[in-house]
């Protein structure tokens, strides 16, 4: 059995940009999801569609559904009790509309790590605007939001025993460094209501008609 050398993960992650540390795991999840989607699409095409190689068309497979309801039929005898009958209404639904399309999707991804900021560089390239307000006082407004440039350099911190907060925070370490706790939670967007809408459309269109009373 090969013995793996002990690797210090904090050392290995010291040269990676924070953006990449967050985005790369998410990208790998997207790639995995893409592979699963491909398989699902193949499954849906094979099972929910009939392929015609002559005209290169996929025709949706349709399944028949039924709604059974009790209907009170008026009595044929004058002043008689109405008869209770079971009326079955059939309607067709594309099979794909019932199929769980994204059931194999990754539910959520949690990226959670701490970063020790060793030093930071802050360059203010913002313009300073001089303005007279309504009281006549002069104020200097520094446009820093869009024009300042901050770069941080650090490394992934070793986990402390204490539980980190879910909110990103900045705290001092030994009065020299600072650390960020990064907690990202990503998940898929909810499915559109297409499936239920189709069923709703079909079921709304089959409202049974009341039988006229026989004279």
């Amino acid at each position: 059995m090969a013995i793996r050398p002990k690797i210090d993960s904090t050392y290995n992650f010291s040269g990676i940009l924070i953006d990449d540390l967050v985005s790369l795991p998410l990208l790998s999840v997207v790639r995995s999801e893409s592979k699963m989607s491909e398989e699902q699409i193949a499954l849906l095409l094979n099972n929910c569609f009939n392929y015609n190689p002559e005209d290169n068309y996929f025709t949706p497979k349709v399944i028949e559904m039924s709604v059974t309801r009790s209907v009170l039929q008026p009595s044929t005898i004058p002043d008689g009790e109405p008869n209770l009958e079971q009326i079955v209404t059939y309607f067709n639904v594309p099979l794909i509309s019932l199929f769980p399309i994204n059931a194999l999707a990754i539910q959520s991804v949690k990226i959670d790590f701490d970063i020790d900021i060793l030093w930071q560089y802050n360059e203010n390239v913002g313009a300073i605007e001089e303005r007279n307000d309504s009281l006549g006082a002069r104020s200097l407004i520094e446009q820093t939001a869009e024009n300042s440039k901050v770069e941080m350099f650090g490394k992934v911190a070793k986990r402390k025993n204490s539980v980190a907060n879910n909110v990103s925070e900045m705290e001092g370490i030994d009065g020299m460094n600072s650390s960020y706790s990064i907690d990202v939670l990503a998940g898929p967007l909810p499915l559109s209501k297409g499936i239920l809408s189709i069923i709703d459309l079909y079921t709304s269109a089959i409202d049974p008609v009341e039988m006229p009373e026989e004279v």
């Binding site: 028949e64 559904m65 039924s66 709604v67 059974t68 309801r69 009790s70 079921t203």
Partner: peptide, 11 residues
């Protein structure tokens, strides 16, 4: 109302 929704035997 106890109406029953199901897939019919044909499908």
């Amino acid at each position: 109302c106890q109406s029953v929704v199901a897939i019919s035997n044909n499908s």
